[in-house]
Write a protein that binds this DNA or RNA. Sequence first.
DNA 1: AAGTTCCTTGTAAACGGTTACATAATCTGG
DNA 2: CCAGATTATGTAACCGTTTACAAGGAACTT
Lengths: 365, 365
Amino acid sequence: MATIRDVAEAASVSIATVSRVLNKKARVSEETARRVWTAAAELDYWPNEAARSLTTNQTHVIGVLLPDLHGEFFSEVIRGIDQAARESRYQILVSSSHADHDEVMTAAKSMQGRIDGLIFMASDNGLAESVDRIQGRMPLVLINPRRIVKGTASLRIGNFLGAREAVNHLLRLGHEDIAILKGPAGNIDAEERLRGYRHALAAADRDLGASREFQGDFLEPSGYRAAAEILGSRRRPTAVFACNDMMAIALISAFGGAGLKVPEDIAVVGFDDVAIARYIHPPLTTVRVEANQLGQRALRRLLAILSGGEAEGAVEEVLPATLVVRESCGASLAGYSTDYSRRKESPGSMPGGTARDSDPEARGD
Amino acid sequence: MATIRDVAEAASVSIATVSRVLNKKARVSEETARRVWTAAAELDYWPNEAARSLTTNQTHVIGVLLPDLHGEFFSEVIRGIDQAARESRYQILVSSSHADHDEVMTAAKSMQGRIDGLIFMASDNGLAESVDRIQGRMPLVLINPRRIVKGTASLRIGNFLGAREAVNHLLRLGHEDIAILKGPAGNIDAEERLRGYRHALAAADRDLGASREFQGDFLEPSGYRAAAEILGSRRRPTAVFACNDMMAIALISAFGGAGLKVPEDIAVVGFDDVAIARYIHPPLTTVRVEANQLGQRALRRLLAILSGGEAEGAVEEVLPATLVVRESCGASLAGYSTDYSRRKESPGSMPGGTARDSDPEARGD
DNA sequence: AAGTTCCTTGTAAACGGTTACATAATCTGG
DNA sequence: CCAGATTATGTAACCGTTTACAAGGAACTT
């Protein structure tokens, strides 16, 4: 509770001098410096950072706006952000579970003046306007935005390519009737994965139409519901591509409960490669997303902008989503060599290297 | 970038008036209010919260200091905190992965002036001093502290009782040679769980000594290492109690890889009840810890203190850790009814109700 | 010894808000 | 119609820092 004035008084110097020695910003005589240090220690003085940032106009804090903290994906992203922040001695101000534009705006507003920049994950519909209103007011990095915004840095996951690859893999294994368990409507990840699924099928002349598309919402219960639907359908698909791992895991559990064997009776592949994907039975074939990397890069990107390094029309960066083949797809049954799975698990590029193949990932094609 | 002065000018009123209408704190004529609102909207004025909190002396931000963000436990705690914070329109300033006293202090210092209170998880050794230095400076709630601090609110998990119950369960199933896979040294959760294990064995006159205590560190790889050690030991235990689920899962995976069947050949029980515990094969018997609840309660507790509601010598609150019986312990084999597991899964008290049974949970006995 | 320069320190003006107090204008009632 | 109460608004101090500028003194130059 001691202020800089108290310290100044105790050391019998002016507050300016105290500020100078504490910040080591200007030359001060050995003697006075010592006096100030001991006075500060004596009083257990901690500078008020709010006052500080008011004058310096920088906070060493980064704001993070997330739609939800639930699930491993988000917690990994935030962990990545925090890790990278720590390295640069930044802290993060978090606000999550924002469903609509108004909520996002109030959250953003209450960050005004306390952050140096913002990482905003705007994957859901209706948040485009929020981006517009925030953009220009503070340095901004978008994660998985719905559409790219001119002059705003953004990072996203290679959802389309990842999903396409997963479905192609299923096709190569001989599956002809592949269902999809979709993610929530309006979510960009879900949409992109669906697009990848459709694209793969269309390219193989195996278009199955909407009858093979089941609705889910990324949460476990929807996986169970979908399993019931799938089992109840007239012709049971031989494989299902779930748009995330939690739903895939629920599917496997539900199928098992119904007496079906995975992958013999029905193959399942997921998306995300959550930590436990390899421990369930059978180990889950899925598409790995480097959520932690995503967070780290987002923060570094923001820091680059802050230090003036990053140019204006900052391009979009896409992190590859790579297929990791385990057993739930039946690849081992089909006699695929581990070699194949290996090739997929460690791509030639650096782990976490980015793909800028804007071509195939281009949206809305 | 517009300041209150710009708005005042645009509305041709004084800054005091602007402040008044924006905060609805005093009577202002309809007419001027309107002028101010439109000027503010026109200029897209966002108040600078740092300046605000400098005068009002409150921030609507809660600091959170965690040792590490890794693992489901931590992310659940933080999610709980965030959820509860949202309800009360608070935001959280997070800083994690603090190993030692100095790091904690710098983190805490850089929060000074930007938070109304602090939630501090100081489970590791060497953080006791940090608590002392922070205590008194700002409202504080401790999560899983090493020792209770006079006049400081704290919450913790019923580690001892939970562990004892788990081991007792194994004993009741007829196991006589029960090993433990310990958590990292110096971690209070790990120590308490170990204490519960020893207590249960001692009470059953089955003290096995240190030969049955294997060292782990809560991370998967240590589970694999321990599995190798256990398999290599002269007499293989018939059951092992792992101090957390990730290690338990690794154990099961490793045992499976070595051709052992769980629970027939060796039983395993974990601690935490992470989301996937029920999806692995066999489903994991474990001790449920309501990490999310822990976070929520910590925040509510802090808010209570802030609003002056909470009395001085704030007591310690302990959240029960309850055994949930699934299959990895072999209870089903042994013919235990689901009834038994049921009884354990939903205790009589409210879900998340707290136990203040200071008696058996008392430390250092 | 006087004029420069350099070093150390203090004074005071910001930063962007809130709020106690003062003041001007309007209303009330006898 | 005027004293007093009430209402609306402005003035200025303050929150706790940083920092441009000024100033005093010591050291150096010639």
